[in-house]
Each structure stands twice: as structure tokens, then as C-alpha cells.
Amino acid sequence: MAENDVIIRTDDLTRAYGSKVAVNHLNLSIRRGEVFGLLGPNGAGKTTTILMLLGLTEPTLGSAWINGLDCTRNSMLVKRITGYLPDNVGFYPDMTGRENLKFTGRLNGLSEKEIEEKIDVLLERVGMTYAADQKTGTYSKGMRQRLGIADVLMKDPQVIIMDEPTLGLDPEGMREFLQLIRQLSVEDGRTVLVSSHQLYQIQQICDRVGIFVSGSLIACGKIEELGRQIAREGHFVLEVEAEPCDDKFLGFIHGLEGIKRIEKEGRKFIVLSSRDLRKDITGFLGQNNYTLLHLRQKGGDLDEIYRCYFEKAEEEEKHGSSKNGKRAFRKK
């Protein structure tokens, strides 16, 4: 990728709270106009990273850049072009939606006329015109989230950063919301950084994802790429169900080469292995008069990718070679 295409960049970004490292030497580049998903479990350091990008928390080491501006030293300029939608976004409960947006407009130094025009357009866009003159204290979570988008768009940002935006939305609200996020990137050409631990939703809208576990980025790339990479590195997950489901069958699977773990889920076995087992298993089932009820090779969806990487990170941690392992992995 060309250097001038990168709009968000972090160099060895690190933040420690006492001895706990919340973000550990993060190197990230996000291209202009893409939707990037920052995925990881709670407490992985996603929010800390975002706060450092906005200059609201100072990094212990390293630096972050948005559009060529240092996020710590030039935070004012950064905040002019960056919109931030915090998780659980709050509005002044005694003000109406319109007044809340007006306040944001004024903070950004827009003229009153501009503000009025913008508010009408944006409220329409996020579908909140009907509740514009209601106090925000009466809003539901979904309404607040949509008003949050309008609020972010008041300053016409080049970069939009969202922290767990889909948390607590109902399925319908979620679908609309994701569509809205996608629009921001495709129609407006804005760069969107979404942090989340809800993998399925994010999978639908992201161009690229980064997987973030306990302060380190353990994988980064397109979802399909990550899927292929997992397969290449020998992470296979097989779902199999057979009749009868007896110990002999289990024993056979157990005895196969390259088995890492077997879990039972209802009547299904979930087999984690380092190679493709389908041929061996079907062969065995055929020879021994079993009836095959279900056989599926999982992989390619984010949930699996995520799980594999997560397990891998844990394993490496156990072996005490975590740092080198992660480093090598990241560079791929």
C-alpha cells in the first residue's frame, strides 16, 4: 500500500497502567476510506487505543498519527477531523436531540446557519427527525446510538472511530445501524474504525480486521486472508455427528494423527486438528457401518478465525515464548 494512502498509523504505541500493559507495541495502519474492525475480548485494550488516537490518553511509548498529525501533540487538529462515537454514548438528558447537536456544532465552530441546515439533513439521514424535539433523556439505546452518528457527522469528519457501537441494540436496530456504518464508508468515503467483540456483525461490514488480545495485535488483514492463513498454519475445525455415537468412534478420532482437542456439543463432536480429517473419518465410518448424520469443515468465518488466534495466543503465553511468537506472526 502506498504511504500516502494510510490515514491512521500507530508506531509501537504502548500504554501501561502501573505494571499492567493495556496496549503493547501496537503497529497499525489503516487506509483511507476503509472500514477497519478492531476485534478483541473485553479488556483487550481497544478503548485505550482509541483514546490515544484521540489524544485523550497519553501513550507511555510510541506515537499515533491521523492524517499526518500527531494525535498527542496536535490533538486539537486531530479532533477536528475525527469523529468519536463512544460506547454507551451520552447526551445531555435535559436537552432535546436537536439542541444536543446544535451544541456539538457550536463546539466545532460552525455558523448558526450551517448548524441548522446540517442538523435537518443529518437527522433525516439517521432517521431521527421524528424525535428531534424530544428530550434525549427519553431516548432508547438505539435512538441514542443513531443520534450519536448524527452527532459525529456534525463536524464532517474524515475519520470516524466507534467503540462497541452495536452493543445492546436489537437485531433490527443492529441491521440498520450496520448499514449506516457501511454507507459512511462507501458513499461518503470516510474512514471508519470500529471496535467490537461482536464478531458476526463486524464481519458483515469490515474491509479488514485486526484481532487484539491482551494489548497486542495478533493478526491483521482481510477476513478471507485470515481464514486461509489459519488453514495454512494447520488449524482445522470439524463438526461431525454419526449414529451410533459410541466410544469406539470417539476412540478412533482420538487415535488419529494431529488431533488437538475434541469437544462434545449435543450429539456432535467438534474436533480441532492440525490437518484435514474428513477423508479418514468418512473412511472409518463407511467401513464400520456407521451412519453419517453431519459433517462440516468449519473455517472462513470470523468466529473460527478469532477462536483459533485466541487459542494460539494463549498457547504461546503458556510456553513463555509469547513475545517472539506474536512478533513473527504479526509480520507474516
Binding site: 483514546l51 484521540l54 485523550l56 486539537m76 487538529l77 479532533k79 477536528r80 475525527t82 469523529g83 468519536y84 463512544p86 454507551n88 454514548v89 451520552g90 447526551f91 445531555y92 438528558p93 456539538t104 463546539l107 466545532n108 465552530g109 450519536g148 452527532d151 463536524k155
Partner: peptide
């Protein structure tokens, strides 16, 4: 209210 981080993410 959760307004502080929204406020501080504005150019102020």
C-alpha cells in the same frame, strides 16, 4: 451521563 468523552472528543 457519558457526555464527558463525547464532549472532549470535540475540538475543545
Amino acid at each position: 451521563n457519558g457526555t464527558l468523552n463525547r464532549l472532549l472528543s470535540q475540538p475543545i
